[in-house]
């Protein structure tokens, strides 16, 4: 299994402003990958480079084994839904399907038609008059019906209300179930993505702070509460992600490769959001992050 995306020391700068710096990343195929990070972490830049819309200023990137350079061979294999899901406001829904059919040799007209019917969109309606959710669905339909091997979505649900958000992700997941497409989704909120991602990448200031399959990440991390002690007093093999102390009690978020060893503490699993926030806080702290390594690469 070759990686769907492989980036090495990838960087992009606009004049003096660094939008992405020294990003090294390897993403396995067959997953719905959540790319999570605060605003300005470089998510959009990374995704735009991945679909060939931007050229990196430094480093290398390969997507599906090829350098993304805007050539048709690559365009046909990668679907991209940009932030705020742009569509042509004065073109109708049907026009958008014609657009897709005319501009993509691998267009699946049946699939597109079925999706539009399922969504209950009126073919003659102008895209400019669709609700945010419907517009997002239309953009998704365009991206899905060209039958890409990899679907990249940049903050697709950020501007949607909760119902539209759930609806969008439901349709996205159905497409994944039907076609087995690999997906990369970005968001600054893990709560947007936690139901749908089975692989998670946490990106803070261009650096990967955490990467791995969600199930494993959840199994590996615990919050342990015990009588006050130093980090060094914890058994070896536990990586401390965060530590908080009161005068009597210490709370650690720890990562263990295997089972959590028994100890004189109460341990519980973290929910994904807490887990991600712990890493985000850690990433934001000065001088942090060097110790983490992507676990995805280990398998």
């Amino acid at each position: 299994m070759t990686a769907i995306l492989q980036a090495h020391a990838l960087g992009k700068s606009y004049g003096r402003r660094q939008a992405l710096a020294d990003c090294t990343l390897e993403l396995p195929p067959g997953h719905v990958i959540g790319l999570v990070g605060p605003n300005g972490a470089g998510k959009t830049t990374l995704l735009k480079i991945a679909c060939g819309m931007l050229a990196p200023t430094t480093g290398q990137i390969e997507v599906l084994g090829e350098q993304p350079d805007g050539a048709t061979s690559q365009l046909a294999r990668v679907g991209y839904v940009a932030q705020d899901t742009p569509t042509y406001a004065n073109l109708s829904v049907a026009d958008h399907l014609t657009l897709g059919a005319r501009m993509n040799p691998g267009w699946d007209a049946k699939l597109a038609q079925a999706r539009i019917e399922q969504l209950g969109l009126q073919p003659r309606q102008k895209a400019g008059r669709l609700s945010g959710g419907q517009r997002a669905q239309l953009a998704l339909t365009l991206a899905v019906a060209k039958r890409p091997e990899l679907l990249i979505l940049d903050e697709p649900v950020a501007s949607l209300d909760p119902l539209a958000r759930r609806d969008f992700l439901r349709h996205l997941m159905e497409s994944v179930a039907e076609q087995g497409t690999s997906v990369i989704l970005s968001s600054h909120l893990i709560s947007d993505l936690e139901r749908v991602c089975d692989y998670l990448v946490v990106l803070v200031s261009s650096r990967v702070r955490l990467a791995g399959e969600v199930d494993e990440l959840l199994a590996q991390h615990h919050r342990i509460v015990c009588a006050r002690r130093q980090e060094s007093d914890l058994p070896a093999g536990l990586i401390v992600i965060s530590a908080e102390h009161t005068d009597r009690q210490s709370t650690f978020v720890v990562r263990s490769e295997g089972e959590l060893p028994a100890g004189d503490w109460s341990a519980e699993h973290l929910e994904l959001e807490d887990l991600v926030l712990t890493y985000l806080e850690r990433g934001a702290a000065p001088g942090a992050g060097a110790a983490t390594r992507p676990t995805g690469a280990a398998r």
Binding site: M53, G70, T72, L75, V78, D84, G100, M103, N104
Partner: peptide
Amino acid sequence: ETGTHQLAWNQTVTR
């Protein structure tokens, strides 16, 4: 202005 170039650029047509 409306970002639709991103839609067009990701069809199977070169820029």
